[in-house]
Structures are given as structure tokens and as C-alpha cells.
């Protein structure tokens, strides 16, 4: 087990960076989609966003990862005219961002809808521009409302990173798999992996709880 400690440490960095990058990208896309769905003048745009979230939330994460990894390799090879392999980390970041954004859109959309309409009307009455309304009035209230559900998304995200090991990314799960095979001690290695994932999710949970206490939903 000794030689694998360093590998586990490196794998932890891979898992954490995969989670953080996809979470941040997914949040950005989710916010954008939720706001464009809320302010869409054309019903077609809102329907497209709904279709996106329905598809992403209705298809297994594993399948999305497989599609983007293998499909991405085929697409890139076809475009380049020779064999190009999409790196597992990139494929993981793209697929987990897609999954995260699908859920985040719904969370943010619900939170935007939960901000009382009177707030927007009052902001309009005060003569605030659309940017000012979103940044100063709706945004802060919406984010506080969204926080508990948004925190759960991060926990699921860190658990979903384990799936990227199936396409060969050397994350915690992959190191455990390799270690279990080479030392013939699967129980030890998978328990170690569970402990690492559990501490990751615990850390996420604690940070979310702290944020919730610091920024409780207003007016409730």
C-alpha cells in the first residue's frame, strides 16, 4: 500500500481539480441558461433550454461521459484527418460541466422564480437598468435561495467524478482499481478510495453549511 500513497495524493488532486473546473464551468453555463430562460422573449429559446435540461437530467452520467470521450475522439479524428485522442481529463471536464449545468439551470431557474415579483417591479420603479436589476436585486436574493440545492449539486458532482475513471482518467477510483489489481487487495484499496471520497463530500457539505449560515435566504 505504501507506494500507492503518493499516487493517491496525485489522484486526489486530479479528482479535486476535475470537480472544481467542471463545477465552475457548469455554474457559469447554468446561470446563463437560467437567466436566458427567465428573460427569453421567444418561447422557442425557453423551450430549447427546457429540452437541454430534460435530456441532460434524463440520461445516465456514465453514458454522457462515454459519448463525449469516444464520440469526441471520433469527431476530432474526422476533423483532423488522422487519429486524435481526446484526453480523458478534457472529456471529463466537458461531460461533467454539461451534467452540472443541466441541474444548475433548474436550480437557478427555481430560485429566480421564487424571488417575489414585487422586487423586480420595485427595481424598475426606481429606474434601475436590466443589468443593475440582475446584479443588485435579483442575483443576491436568488443565490441565497438556491444555495441548499446548489450545494447538493456539488456533492453529486464530486461523486460523479469517479465515473471518469472508466474512460481511463487516473483519478482516485482508477488508482484504487490499479492498486487493487496489482497488490490483490481490492477491499483495502476500495475502502481507501471510499474514505477519500467521503472526506471530499464531507468537506463540501461543511463548506455549504457554512455558506448557508453566512448567507441565509432573506425574508424567511
Amino acid at each position: 500500500m505504501g507506494g500507492f500513497t503518493a499516487q493517491f495524493a496525485a489522484a486526489l488532486t486530479v479528482t479535486v481539480s476535475l470537480g472544481l473546473i467542471s463545477g465552475c464551468l457548469g455554474t457559469a453555463v447554468g446561470l446563463f441558461l437560467a437567466i436566458s430562460k427567465g428573460t427569453a422573449r421567444h418561447p422557442r429559446l425557453a423551450n430549447m433550454v427546457t429540452a437541454y435540461t430534460t435530456i441532460v437530467r434524463g440520461v445516465p452520467e456514465l453514458l454522457i461521459i462515454l459519448l463525449i470521450y469516444f464520440g469526441g475522439t471520433t469527431l476530432a479524428s474526422r476533423l483532423a484527418g488522422r487519429y486524435v485522442e481526446v484526453n480523458a481529463f478534457t472529456a471529463g471536464v466537458i461531460s461533467l460541466s454539461v451534467v452540472f449545468s443541466g441541474y444548475a439551470t433548474e436550480v437557478f431557474r427555481g430560485a429566480i422564480a421564487a424571488v417575489p415579483a414585487g422586487q423586480t417591479e420595485a427595481a424598475k420603479a426606481l429606474g434601475l437598468s436590466a443589468w443593475q436589476r440582475w446584479l443588485l436585486i435579483i442575483g443576491p436574493q436568488m443565490l441565497r435561495l438556491a444555495l441548499p440545492a446548489y450545494g447538493n449539486l456539488w456533492i453529486s458532482l464530486f461523486k460523479d467524478t469517479a465515473l471518469v475513471s472508466i474512460v481511463g482518467l487516473t483519478d482516485i477510483m482508477r488508482v484504487a482499481y490499479v492498486g487493487a489489481g496489482s497488490l490483490r487487495a481490492p477491499l483495502t484499496f476500495y475502502l481507501a478510495a471510499s474514505a477519500l471520497y467521503l472526506s471530499l463530500t464531507t468537506l463540501t457539505l461543511l463548506s455549504i453549511r457554512m455558506a448557508e449560515r453566512r448567507y441565509p435566504a432573506l425574508g424567511r
Binding site: I155, K159, D160, T161, A162, L163, S165, I166, M173, A176, Y177, A180, R184, A185, P186, L187, T188, Y190, L191, A193, S194, Y197, L198, T201, T202, L205
Partner: peptide, 22 residues
């Protein structure tokens, strides 16, 4: 808490590969 805090893939591998070690 433990089950919800760990990926289901790890749980599956623990049972499929891990239990045989005992």
C-alpha cells in the same frame, strides 16, 4: 451518510471485487 457520501461505483466495486478478498 456514508452511503450517500461515496460514489455508487466505489460501492459496486467494493462488493464485486472487494468482498472476495475476505
Amino acid at each position: 451518510y456514508v452511503v450517500r457520501g461515496t460514489p455508487m461505483l466505489v460501492q459496486l466495486f467494493l462488493i464485486y471485487y472487494g468482498l472476495g478478498q475476505i
